[in-house]
């Protein structure tokens, strides 16, 4: 058994790396979209608010897998060549962005109105208000929800295996196909996903505690 695991370790390690890469790209891109979208929902003019609201509500009502398939099969049909990995990252980022936008909007909206009024009273510009008053308080409220989203995204990244990206899930499927040791290698994959996500949740909880004391 040890031998079997050792001989498959390189493939599984590469898969894990791809899972990490995809998740990191999605979280980065999704957070950028989400912060932009959240600010659009909060401070945008009516047309911008409507557009962002439409984006957020649409993306949250469609399964991630459908988004991945739609981009992976749909983009080439309109002449845009995308690799499976890019299609997966794009689809999950759009989904992640919609969630983060809603988190950012909720967090900023929950900051008491008096804070903005006080900042206005001090004569701070819009940018200064965001940077020195709103963001520091919003981050504390965003963080716990963001960590939950990160865990969900790492889990969802397994869906890219269905468009043939060799992530951790696909790597394990390949190893199972070769060795016929399904239970053993599913357990290995489960352990790796669990360690990754559980560590992340724990770190999130810790940060949350630390911020809430400050």
């Amino acid at each position: 058994m040890i031998e079997l695991i050792l001989s498959s370790a390189p493939l599984i390690a590469r898969g894990l790396l791809i899972t990490l890469l995809v998740s990191a790209c999605v979280l980065l891109l999704g957070s950028v979209i989400g912060v932009g979208g959240g600010l659009g929902l909060l401070y945008g003019g009516r047309p911008l608010r409507l557009v962002v609201r439409f984006y957020v509500d649409t993306l949250r009502g469609i399964p991630q897998l459908v988004l991945i398939f739609a981009i992976f099969y749909g983009f080439p049909a309109i002449g845009l060549q995308v690799s499976a990995m890019i299609a997966g990252i794009l689809a999950l980022s759009l989904f992640c962005g919609a969630h983060v936008a809603e988190i950012v909007r909720g967090a900023v909206a929950s900051i008491p109105r008096g804070q903005t009024d006080a900042a206005l009273g001090l004569g701070l510009s819009f940018r200064q208000r965001l940077r020195h008053v709103i963001f520091p308080q919003a981050v504390v409220r965003i963080l716990p929800a963001w960590v939950n989203t990160a865990v969900e995204i790492i889990k969802s990244s397994s869906l890219v295996s269905l468009v043939s990206v060799v992530d951790l899930t696909m790597a394990v499927q390949q190893v199972v196909g070769r060795t016929r040791e399904a239970l053993l290698f599913y357990a290995v994959a489960a352990a790796l996903y669990f360690l990754l996500n559980f560590t992340l949740s724990m770190a999130g909880r810790r940060l949350e505690r630390r911020f809430s004391h400050a």
Binding site: S156, S158, L162, T169, A189, A190, Y193, F194
Partner: peptide, 8 residues
């Protein structure tokens, strides 16, 4: 269960 993908 909450920390591993549904697909798995």
């Amino acid at each position: 269960v909450r920390n591993i993908p549904l697909l798995l």
